[in-house]
């Protein structure tokens, strides 16, 4: 799957909330999209899925290619028929996307039947297989239960089962483990990894946890203020982080530094979309910012498959810091 040049603005706002974002994931590959809250990760995912209502949002540029087909996102959304069997999404909070009034089994069957072809009995058998596949014991019993009868981890498994029921080529997972405890998160990550290996789907994993990226990602895209500021293979970006925001995020993580030492910080907070500066959007928080940063830096190649958008990379060659 390949998304190119997505530009999106909420109507009535002065700036684009997603600004020329391009993302790609090969089959069998996990692309992790990271960044702090409000940097446009979910909006990008929703736009991919065609879930943003056109009366409140305006897409002025963007193409999505899945397999051999290309969609012009400015004109049409991915047809409903393709969502589900080509591209499926799981959300951060499973309770909001499972209907509390219906049995789990009926909801999964519905998703399967909607994609066409299956009879009720086939759908039911498929639903049972899927639940077993995502590691739920007693699937026949669970199909008869309501969402509130399941734990958070189990609900997330049901969501994954539902999303994968029609063998999608692309799975978008928006912070699928953020609401879960770490032992359950570990189980879900194991599951996503196994399924990726079995099915060979492309996965876009949205997260703000760099540990999750290290654990499951093949490639990483770092977003700030609705733009991709750095992207590349995970190992390469971790070993050779270039953008000041990437470096800031990594140094702010507790657990990487000696315990008790002061953490390096990214000063300030993310500006609202209306207050985004011109030029490099990070410049109101960047310690290296200078007048040149009022011009927007292009996302350009710094190493094999590794791109970064900053006027001063590599930093050590262009900037000196006297202590």
């Amino acid at each position: 799957m390949e998304l190119s040049n997505l530009v999106l603005r909420f109507r009535g706002q002065p700036n684009d909330v997603v600004d020329h974002v391009s993302l790609a994931a090969k089959s069998g590959e996990v692309l992790c999209v990271v960044g702090e809250s409000g940097c446009g990760k979910s909006v990008t995912a929703m736009a991919l899925m065609g879930l943003l209502p056109p009366d409140s949002s305006l897409i002025s540029s963007g193409n999505l290619r899945i397999g051999g087909e290309t969609f012009d996102l400015t004109r049409d959304v991915v047809p409903r028929a393709m969502r589900g069997n080509r591209i499926a999404m799981i959300f951060q909070e499973p309770m909001t996307s499972l209907n509390p009034a219906f049995r789990v089994g009926d909801q999964i069957c519905e998703a399967i039947i909607q994609q066409g072809g299956a009879t009720r009995a086939q759908a039911r058998a498929r639903a049972e297989t899927m639940l077993r596949r995502v590691g739920i014991a007693n699937p026949a019993q669970r199909l008869l239960e309501y969402p509130h009868q399941l734990s958070g981890g189990m609900r997330q498994r049901v969501m994954i089962a539902m999303a994968l029921a029609n063998d999608p080529q692309v799975l978008i997972a928006d912070e699928p483990t953020t609401a879960l405890d770490v032992t359950i998160q570990a189980q879900i990550l194991d599951l996503i990894r196994d399924l990726r290996d079995d099915i060979g789907m492309s996965t876009i994993m949205i997260t703000h946890d760099l540990g999750v990226v290290a654990e499951i990602g093949d490639r990483i895209a770092v977003m700030y203020g609705g733009q991709v500021v750095e992207q590349g293979p995970v190992r390469e970006v971790f070993d050779n982080p270039q953008h000041p925001y990437t470096i800031g995020l990594m140094s702010a993580m507790p657990g990487l530094e000696r315990p008790g030492a002061r953490l390096a910080i990214v000063p300030g907070t993310v500006p609202t979309i209306a207050n985004m500066p011109e030029g490099c959007r990070f410049r109101t928080r960047c310690v290296f910012a200078t007048a040149a940063c009022a011009r927007r830096p292009a996302l350009s190649e710094i190493a094999a498959q590794h791109q970064v958008a900053c006027h001063f990379v590599p930093l050590e060659e262009n900037i000196e810091v006297a202590r």
Partner: peptide, 13 residues
């Protein structure tokens, strides 16, 4: 380099 800059080191481009 980043830490030195956030801790008030003088920065020269």
């Amino acid at each position: 380099l980043y830490r030195a800059a956030t801790e008030g080191g003088a920065i020269a481009h």
